Simulated scan of single mutants.
Amino acid sequence: MRRLVLMRHAKTEANHVEGDKARRLNPRGVQDAQEAGVALRGLGVDYALVSSAVRTRETFAHLGLDVPVEFQDALYYGGTETMLQRIAEMGDDVECLLVVGHAPTVPSLVAELAYASNRAEADQAQCWFPTAAYTVFSFDGSWESLGEGDLDHVHLDAVTRPDKHH
């Protein structure tokens, strides 16, 4: 059984003089990421894909996970198809993958994956997926099968929003 964790970066400053990609976490974002990290360590994450933006890199750092990580521009610039393709490229040795990205891509992909097993939660993800929220999915099979659109076997296990980390 594989696990996929899709996470939106933690709370950030409103803007940055160097542009959107340079925005940093604010104190609440740091705290939310640290709290999420406690729960994520219990899931057995063994690999991470993280957008190359400063706020996603900082979110990952404050999670405190000691796992291999790839920082990818495609997760900053691309949409759901790009994110799903990057996930599908994972090797069979990865059992639990964490992806840290942005809205609207993360909530949209959560909704797409959740639709078959939990339509109410799929709708909720599209409407309200705050910073530092993450969703856990489980499935049998390969990562590649997700990229091929085989989503019927994907099950939504948990949705965690910052107010639920405690």
Rank of each mutant, 00 (worst) to 15 (best):
residue 140 D to E: 15
residue 86 R to G: 01
residue 105 T to E: 04
residue 144 E to P: 01
residue 131 T to K: 03
residue 67 V to I: 11
residue 28 R to T: 11
residue 154 V to N: 00
residue 118 N to S: 15
residue 75 L to D: 02
residue 161 R to Q: 13
residue 63 L to T: 07
residue 90 M to T: 06
residue 33 A to M: 04
residue 54 V to D: 04
residue 19 G to K: 07
residue 38 V to R: 14
residue 136 V to E: 01
residue 130 P to L: 10
residue 64 G to D: 03
residue 68 P to S: 12
residue 133 A to N: 06
residue 84 L to G: 00
residue 8 R to L: 07
residue 124 Q to D: 13
residue 23 R to E: 05
residue 88 A to S: 15
residue 31 Q to N: 10
residue 53 A to C: 10
residue 154 V to T: 01
residue 57 R to N: 04
residue 78 G to H: 01
residue 115 Y to W: 14
residue 55 R to S: 05
residue 119 R to C: 06
residue 149 G to C: 11
residue 105 T to P: 00
residue 119 R to V: 13
residue 68 P to E: 13
residue 88 A to F: 13
residue 82 T to N: 09
residue 69 V to K: 01
residue 54 V to I: 12
residue 52 S to A: 15
residue 125 A to G: 06
residue 52 S to C: 11
residue 157 D to C: 10
residue 34 Q to G: 03
residue 41 R to T: 08
residue 51 S to F: 08
residue 41 R to C: 07
residue 41 R to I: 05
residue 140 D to N: 13
residue 30 V to W: 02
residue 10 A to D: 01
residue 40 L to A: 03
residue 139 F to S: 06
residue 158 A to C: 05
residue 144 E to I: 02
residue 89 E to W: 11
residue 7 M to N: 03
residue 146 L to Q: 06
residue 133 A to I: 10
residue 158 A to V: 08
residue 72 Q to P: 01
residue 46 D to S: 09
residue 160 T to V: 15
residue 95 E to C: 09
residue 153 H to Y: 02
residue 28 R to I: 08
residue 72 Q to M: 14
residue 162 P to E: 03
residue 36 A to L: 10
residue 108 S to I: 04
residue 98 L to Y: 00
residue 42 G to N: 12
residue 41 R to A: 14
residue 112 E to L: 15
residue 38 V to W: 05
residue 135 T to I: 08
residue 111 A to L: 09
residue 41 R to Q: 14
residue 70 E to W: 07
residue 19 G to V: 09
residue 140 D to M: 09
residue 134 Y to C: 09
residue 162 P to I: 08
residue 81 E to H: 11
residue 17 V to K: 12
residue 18 E to G: 05
residue 16 H to Q: 08
residue 73 D to N: 14
residue 138 S to D: 13
residue 86 R to W: 03
residue 122 A to L: 02
residue 39 A to M: 08
residue 114 A to Q: 11
residue 3 R to W: 09
residue 105 T to R: 02
residue 17 V to W: 10
residue 141 G to T: 08
residue 35 E to M: 13
residue 122 A to D: 02
